[in-house]
C-alpha cells in the first residue's frame, strides 16, 4: 500500500508533463494571427463536414428543374441553386466533406510511402542511391500530369484521385524524411542505441522517426492544401468526382457554362477552395515557425 501513493503521484506528473512540449508549440502557434485565422477556417470546415446533414435543408444531389438557377439570397436557398435546381449551400457543405476526406486519405497514404522510403533511403546508404533515383524519376513528372496518368490507368473516381495525389506526394515527403534521417542518424543517441544492441527497425521507428516529426507535420499540413487543390483541379478536368457528386472542382466545371447568367455557381465553390487552401497553408507556415526543432535545448 505504501507504494501506491508515489505511483499515483508519478501518474499525475506524467499527465502534466505530456502536454508541455505540445503546449509550448500550441502557444507559439496561437500568437501567429494568420495561423489562428487559418485554424478557425479549418475548424469551421471540419464542423461543416461532420455536421453536413444537420446544417443543410436540401439534398445536395436532388434535382428540381422548377427552381433552377435561383440567384443568391433566394427564399430557402441562401446561396441560390444551380442549373438543375440543386441547393448550392448543400453542395458546398457536402463538398467540404469530400475535400477533407480525399485530402486526408491522400496525405496519409503519401506520408506512409514517403516515410518508409525516406527512412530506408536515409538509414541504409546502399539503398539510398536506388530510392533517391526513383524519387527523382517521380519528381521529373509535372504533378498534375502524373496524377492524370495514374487516373488514366486506374480509372476516374475519387478514390483513384486520392491514390494519384498520394503517389505524387511520396517523393517530396521521402526527401524531407531522408534529410532529417541523415542528420539524426549521426547523433550520438543513435550510436548509443546501436551499442545497446537495438535492431535497425527499433532505431528507425522509435528513435529516428520521433525526432523527425516536426518537418513531417509541417509537410502534411501544407500537403493537405495541395491535395485539396489538386482534387478540385482533377475533378474540374472531369477526372475526379463524377456528377452529380457535390465536389468543389466539379461544381466550378459545371457552373462555368453559366458564368454570365449565374456567376455564384463558380464563385462560391471557388471561394471555398481558396479559403481552404489558404487556411492549410498559413497553418502550415505557422506550425513551421512554432515547432522549433531546438525546442528541447533550453
Amino acid at each position: 500500500m505504501a507504494e501506491a501513493v508515489p505511483a499515483l503521484g508519478a501518474k499525475i506528473k506524467r499527465a502534466k508533463k505530456k502536454e508541455s512540449s505540445f503546449l509550448v508549440t500550441t502557444k507559439r502557434l496561437l500568437k501567429n494571427k494568420l495561423a489562428v485565422v487559418g485554424l478557425v477556417i479549418i475548424a469551421i470546415q471540419i464542423a461543416l463536414a461532420i455536421f453536413a446533414p444537420l446544417l443543410t435543408f436540401h439534398d445536395p444531389v436532388k434535382q428540381n428543374l422548377k427552381i433552377s438557377e435561383l440567384p443568391m439570397f433566394s427564399d430557402g436557398h441562401w446561396l441560390g441553386t444551380d442549373n438543375y435546381g440543386r441547393d448550392v449551400w448543400s453542395r458546398v457543405v457536402f463538398g467540404a466533406r469530400i475535400s477533407l476526406i480525399v485530402g486526408i486519405i491522400a496525405v496519409s497514404l503519401g506520408l506512409f510511402g514517403g516515410i518508409i522510403l525516406g527512412l530506408l533511403g536515409g538509414y541504409y546508404q546502399k539503398l539510398d542511391g536506388v530510392i533517391m533515383r526513383i524519387v527523382d524519376l517521380l519528381f521529373s513528372f509535372p504533378g498534375i500530369l502524373l496524377a492524370m496518368l495514374i487516373i488514366a490507368i486506374l480509372g476516374t473516381s475519387l478514390v483513384n484521385v486520392a491514390i494519384a495525389i498520394s503517389i505524387w506526394s511520396i517523393p517530396s515527403c521521402a526527401r524531407i524524411v531522408r534529410g532529417s534521417v541523415l542528420s539524426i542518424k549521426e547523433k550520438e543517441y543513435i550510436m548509443a542505441m546501436k551499442s545497446l544492441g537495438a535492431s535497425d527497425l527499433r532505431i528507425m521507428v522509435k528513435h529516428i522517426l520521433p525526432n523527425a516529426t516536426a518537418p513531417i507535420i509541417v509537410f502534411a499540413t501544407m500537403r493537405m492544401a495541395t491535395a485539396i487543390l489538386s482534387t478540385a483541379s482533377l475533378s474540374y478536368l472531369g477526372l475526379g468526382a463524377q456528377p452529380p457528386t457535390p465536389e468543389w472542382g466539379a461544381m466550378i466545371s459545371q457552373g462555368q457554362a453559366f458564368m454570365w447568367t449565374s456567376p455564384h455557381l463558380t464563385i462560391i465553390p471557388g471561394i471555398a477552395i481558396m479559403l481552404t487552401v489558404f487556411a492549410f497553408n498559413v497553418v502550415g507556415d505557422g506550425l513551421r515557425d512554432a515547432i522549433d526543432p531546438n525546442m528541447d535545448i533550453q
Binding site: 547523433k187 550520438e188 543517441y189 550510436m191 548509443a192 542505441m193 522509435k206 528513435h207 520521433p210 525526432n211 528541447d296 535545448i297
Partner: peptide, 10 residues
C-alpha cells in the same frame, strides 16, 4: 556527451 547520447524525445 550525456545529453547527445539520450533521445531527446524519450
Amino acid at each position: 556527451d550525456p545529453f547527445a547520447s539520450l533521445n531527446p524525445r524519450q
